[in-house]
Nucleic acid binder design. Structure first.
Length: 427
RNA sequence: GGAAGCGUAUCGAAGUGGUCGCAACGAGCCGCACUCGAAAUGCGGUUGUCUGCAAAACAGGCACGUGGGUUCGAAUCCCACCGCUUCCGCCA
């Protein structure tokens, strides 16, 4: 949520910043409503002050044997007027809040405007693997090695589902274990959150109301989504709401967490040919990192998360690149996003395996997460950051393809071997 | 699923329609005094949020789980919802 005060005081800046994100908006109507709201508020608060004064004097009037009938009549009329104005203020407030809550976050000033075409590759890691044989794609490799059973996945749950089996399941689990061990070594606290979340989590993370149709809702008898539950589309949705409504101790910042959860997404629409296999499914495994940071240090936290995600990829020995996203390609809630994209040899393209973002105070404003600022002694919104560390459903295909051998076998990266009982090659 | 009890500030806890007491009292925390220093003691301070203001100070509004209602006036009475605790039942 963008600060209403900022919209009020620096309207042109906000308008221009949103435009860089591809969001064209005019604030005239909003600002007029805001002026009207504050005027009415001043009026009704004056009335309430009077009512409070009169109410306080009533016991004294009674004590002195005075007549209260006239005062009661007057106050009843005043009360009716107050109730009416209160409704008008609440109505304006509701309109203002829902408008502002629908706006995306402001992009950081250094981001290029526009969409994907303006993304910048920051760094390329490793080199494209060279094969002196005809390579196979990950679907053929995984099926051939019995790692993934696509057909039975579809039988169980329909298109967009698969099941890992045997060494394939162990490999998936080894990746997760490897990531977990790295995060623990870095001092991050491990969290296993609920997978079914309440509406407020989606709102707080900035995913609702706009994207509430893109998650799976539980049929649990709730008559309306605001009282129901949905399957989390990423652990970020849970982690970023852990301290909602709280004022955390400044000395505890930054707070660092990671969580393993499957992620459940509708991914509505048809799949392109290039997204076959595990590239895009309705359920995939991911480890998510989240930091709660002091506003003065959130850029350092961002750099740390980016470095962590890159390091995981480097240790796996994969060829990948790091991209800084243009303003319009960052997701709605985020002020800044870097993507890690892994090379998929069979496709000849890079696919996202991690997205590291800084929401600044956008999410904290929505779910009211604050810290006490020692400089002012007052509560202030903190910054939330998140990044995949990593999504295995993209890493595994890339790994299978990049490590494939001429005979259709796959070499296991060294860092994973301890988690696979020393297994060196899958054949 | 059934029954009972309970949600008050950082924590504990009183308050069951207005005044005495504009949320008491106790602990914690911060400051000051006393002290060579500390402890003890004494005094003072210590919720959030909105509006007015460039800001601070200050003034006012709102908030006693949440939302409604009754009333001139609600922490207090009524209704609904949410959460917690205990007991019973059921269950991996």
């Amino acid at each position: 949520m963008i600060d209403l005060n900022l919209i009020r005081n620096q309207t042109e800046y906000v308008t221009a910043a949103l435009a860089r994100k591809g969001c064209v908006v005019c604030f005239d109507e909003l600002l007029a409503k805001d002026v009207a709201r504050r005027a009415k508020m001043a009026e009704v608060e004056g009335m309430k002050a009077k009512r409070n004064q009169v109410s306080a004097s009533i016991p004294r009037i009674k004590k002195e044997g005075g007549d209260t009938a006239a005062v009661f009549a007057e106050m009843r009329a005043l009360g009716d007027k107050i109730a009416e104005l209160d409704r008008e203020v609440a109505d304006l407030q509701e309109q203002i809040t829902s408008f502002v809550a629908g706006l995306p976050n402001l992009p950081d000033d250094d981001l290029l405007p526009g969409e994907k075409e303006n993304n910048q590759v920051v760094k390329v890691y490793g080199e494209q693997p060279h094969f002196d044989f005809t390579i196979k794609n990950h679907v053929d490799l995984c099926v051939g090695l019995g790692l993934i059973d696509y057909e039975r996945g579809v039988k169980l749950a329909g298109n967009g589902h698969w099941l890992y089996r045997g060494v394939g399941a162990q490999l998936e689990w080894a990746l997760l274990n490897f990531f977990i061990s790295e995060h623990l070594a870095d001092g991050y606290e491990m969290i296993l959150p609920p997978h079914m979340l309440g509406y407020n989590c989606g709102y707080g993370a900035g995913q609702f109301p706009k994207f509430s149709d893109e998650v799976y809702w539980i049929e649990d008898g709730a008559e309306d989504r605001k009282k129901g539950h949905f399957m989390l589309p990423t652990a970020e949705t849970a982690l970023v709401n852990m301290y909602a409504g709280e004022i955390v101790d400044e000395a505890k910042l930054p707070m660092k967490f990671f969580a393993y959860t499957p992620c459940y997404r509708k991914e509505a629409g048809t799949y392109r040919a290039e997204e076959r296999g595990m590239i895009r499914g309705h359920q995939f495994n991911k480890i998510e990192m989240v930091q709660y940071a002091h506003p003065d240090h959130s850029r350092e936290a961002f750099d740390e998360l980016v470095a962590k995600a890159c390091r995981l990829m480097e240790k796996l020995g994969l060829h990948f690149r790091l991209s800084k996203l243009a303003a319009g390609d960052c997701s709605a809630s985020m002020a800044r996003t870097y993507d890690i994209e892994v090379w998929i040899p069979s496709m000849g393209i890079y696919k996202e395996v991690s997205s590291v973002s800084n929401a600044n105070d956008y999410q904290a404003r929505r779910n009211n997460t604050k810290f006490r600022d020692s400089r002012t002694g007052k509560p202030a919104f903190l910054h939330t950051l998140n990044g995949s560390g990593l999504a295995t459903s993209r890493v595994l295909p890339a790994l299978i393809e990049q490590y494939q051998q001429a005979d259709g076998s796959v070499v296991v990266p060294e860092v994973l071997r301890p988690f696979l009982g020393g297994l060196e090659i899958i054949k």
